[in-house]
């Protein structure tokens, strides 16, 4: 029999610390597959965030830097400016990118830094125990919005992909989800494209990945997939918000 699915080489052969059913692992695998398929592992440098993916550097067989909370795009800028021929990507959650790191992501995008940003949005702070994130949905209960997010007090969940797509410099911005095989296939294509944009066009690319947090959503993993479909996708529509000019 021929292998039709095996672990990508760039994904370290270790067990992750992620909770059962957490889809960070799927996103990791898609990144590793993209790195393998583009054959860039030996010139790729990743930047890990603060949050659940803080230990991402243990899970990829590429060089890695661990950034302070929200600062991954600035760290990636430093790496890319020092080594312009390398492939640099950040892996960031919604607290990291959409809250404490808004200045860094907006300006890295606005400068058109030739980096790839994988932005995992699960609408909650996972690592710290399920607090409200800037992406937490209206009415969603978290440990710091125990009565549900009150948009009159906290504002509305922030749509980073759309916000960043208003900028001139970014080449590729998309939102995908990893809650079904079909969505995972779309996510795979988008993530690979986001690396290709960096490698071929020397441009900024960001993929927002809607992801689950069964533990802090208080749902069994299987139900978390459905919750994402029914609650997140209607507010965070999937699609490509910015594509390279030649592809338009």
């Amino acid at each position: 029999m021929k292998p039709v699915f095996t672990r990508p080489r760039s994904l370290a052969d270790v067990s992750t610390h992620y909770c059962p059913g957490c889809t960070h692992g799927i996103v990791h695998r898609l990144i590793a597959e993209a790195i393998d398929e583009l054959d860039i592992a030996e010139r790729t440098i990743g930047v890990a965030p603060v949050g659940c993916a803080v230990l991402a550097y243990n899970y990829f067989n590429v060089d890695f830097q661990e950034a302070a909370h929200g600062r991954a795009p600035a760290v990636a800028t430093g790496i890319k400016r020092a080594l312009p021929d390398r492939v640099v990507f950040t892996y960031q959650g919604d607290g990291d990118l959409a809250s404490i790191g808004t200045a860094e992501i907006v300006h890295a995008a606005n400068r058109g830094e030739a980096i790839t940003v994988i932005y995992v949005n699960n609408a909650i702070y996972g690592m710290t125990g399920g607090q409200m994130a800037p992406t937490t949905l209206a009415g969603q209960k978290t440990t710091t919005s125990p009565f549900g997010r009150d948009v009159e007090v906290c504002g509305y969940p922030i749509r980073m992909a759309e916000l960043l797509a208003t900028l001139v410099a970014p080449r590729y911005i998309a939102r995908v989800a990893v809650n079904s095989p079909a969505h995972i296939q779309q996510a795979k294509r988008a993530i690979k494209r986001a690396f290709e944009v960096q490698v071929n066009d020397h441009g900024f690319a960001l993929v927002e990945v809607l992801s689950t947090c069964p533990t802090n959503w208080g749902l069994p993993p299987k139900k978390a997939l459905a919750w994402l479909e029914e609650n997140m996708i209607p507010y965070y529509p999937l699609g490509e918000f910015k594509v390279p000019k030649e592809a338009e």
Partner: peptide, 24 residues
């Protein structure tokens, strides 16, 4: 060389982190 005006001092020092980590 590279001169880059960062969006903040916070970003500038983290760019330093990245570039230094890359060996520069």
């Amino acid at each position: 060389g590279v001169f880059l005006q960062a969006e903040s001092e916070v970003a500038a020092i983290n760019m330093v982190y990245g570039a230094s980590g890359a060996g520069a």
